[in-house]
Computed example of a mutant assay.
Amino acid sequence: MAMLEKGSPAREMSFASMVNDERYRAVFYQIVAFAVIMWCGWFLFTTTSQNLATRGMSSGFDFLGNTAGFAIAWHIIPYEPTDNYGRVYLVGITNTLIVSVVAIFFTTIVGFIVGILRLSSNWLIAKLAGWYVEILRNTPLLLQILFWYLAVFSVLPQPRNSLAILGAFELNNRGFYMPAPIPGELFWLTMLAIVIGVAATLLLANFAKRRHLATGHRINILWPSLGLLILLPLAVFLVTGAPLSFDYPVLQGFNFTGGTSVPPAFCALLI
C-alpha cells in the first residue's frame, strides 16, 4: 500500500484552498465580519472619546449628580430646583406611571363602551363608533397630544372664568383643579378593609372554581364579592366616623388655592 509522505499535497492545505473549502469558508467569513465590526466599534469609540476630550465634554452618567436648576410643573414626590438630575429622572418615571395607571382605567371603560357600540344593530351608531376607532388608531399620538394641548386646553378661559364641573371641579387654561382628599387618623382601617375584601374575593373565586371542577356545580359569587369589595369597606368607613375630608380649590386673586391640580400637559397626554 502506498504511504503518503509528510510533505505531500494531501496533507498540506493552502490558504486559498481553505477559503474555498465549504467546510471552512463559512467560519472564515464570520471571523472576518466579526473582526471588521469590532474594529469599527473601537474606531468610533476612540474617535468620539478624543473629540469629547478635545471639546472639554464628559460622557457617562456622572451628570445625574449635578444640580438640575429648573422647576417641574407637576410632581407627586417632593422636588426642588436644587435637586440633581437623578431626582428629575425619578420624578419623570413617577409621573409616567401615574398617567399610565389613570389612562388604563379610563381606556378600559371607553374601549368597552365603543366596542359595544360597534356591535350595535343601529347603522349610524355602529358607523360612528367605527369612525372613532379608525380616526384615533390611524392618527399619530404626538399629533393628538399637540391637538389637545394647543387647540383645546390652551384656549380655555382664564382662572376667573373657569368652567365649573359639578360644583367641585374647575377647568381652565392652567389645568384641571379638583378637591384634595385629607385622610383622618382611622382611615387606615378603611384601606385595610379594602385589602381584606380583595383578598377574600380572590379566595372565594378560587374556592368556587375548585368546587366547580370537582362537582360540576357552579357557585354564584357575584353578590358576596360585591359585599366584600364595597359593603365591607363602606361599613368600616362609616363605623370609624367617616375619617376623610376634602380640601376644595378656591379662587383667590388670579388663581386657585387649595385642593390639587394637574397641568394642561398632563390632561393632553392622558386624553
Rank of each mutant, 00 (worst) to 15 (best):
W148H: 09
W148P: 10
W148S: 09
Y149I: 04
Y149D: 11
Y149G: 00
L150Q: 10
L150W: 11
A151P: 12
V152A: 03
F153E: 04
F153G: 05
F153C: 03
F153N: 05
S154F: 14
S154V: 10
S154E: 09
S154Q: 08
V155C: 08
L156R: 04
P157L: 10
Q158C: 07
P159Q: 04
P159E: 06
R160F: 11
R160C: 09
R160W: 11
N161P: 14
N161H: 14
S162E: 09
S162P: 14
A164H: 11
A164V: 15
A164N: 14
A164D: 15
I165F: 14
I165V: 11
I165Y: 13
L166M: 06
L166V: 05
L166S: 04
A168M: 11
F169E: 01
F169S: 00
F169I: 01
F169K: 01
E170R: 12
E170H: 15
E170I: 06
E170L: 11
E170C: 07
L171P: 02
L171E: 02
L171T: 02
L171W: 03
N172L: 11
N172F: 12
N173Y: 10
N173L: 12
N173G: 04
R174S: 00
G175Q: 02
F176G: 05
F176E: 00
F176M: 08
M178C: 07
P179K: 02
P179S: 01
P179V: 01
A180P: 03
A180T: 00
A180V: 00
P181E: 00
I182M: 14
P183L: 08
P183V: 06
G184I: 05
E185K: 14
E185Q: 15
F187P: 15
F187T: 10
W188G: 13
L189V: 13
L189Y: 15
L189T: 10
L189M: 15
T190M: 12
T190F: 14
T190H: 09
T190C: 07
M191W: 12
L192P: 07
L192A: 15
L192R: 06
L192Q: 08
L192G: 14
A193D: 01
A193R: 08
I194G: 00
V195N: 09
I196R: 09
I196E: 04
I196F: 05
G197P: 08
V198Y: 03
V198T: 02
V198I: 05
V198W: 01
A199V: 15
A199H: 06
A200S: 14
A200C: 07
A200N: 11
T201F: 11
T201N: 05
L202W: 03
L202D: 01
L203D: 03
L203K: 12
L203Y: 05
L204H: 10
L204R: 02
A205I: 07
A205K: 03
N206C: 13
N206F: 15
N206Y: 09
F207R: 00
A208C: 06
R210C: 05
R210E: 07
R210G: 01
R210H: 09
R210M: 12
R211I: 14
R211E: 04
R211G: 00
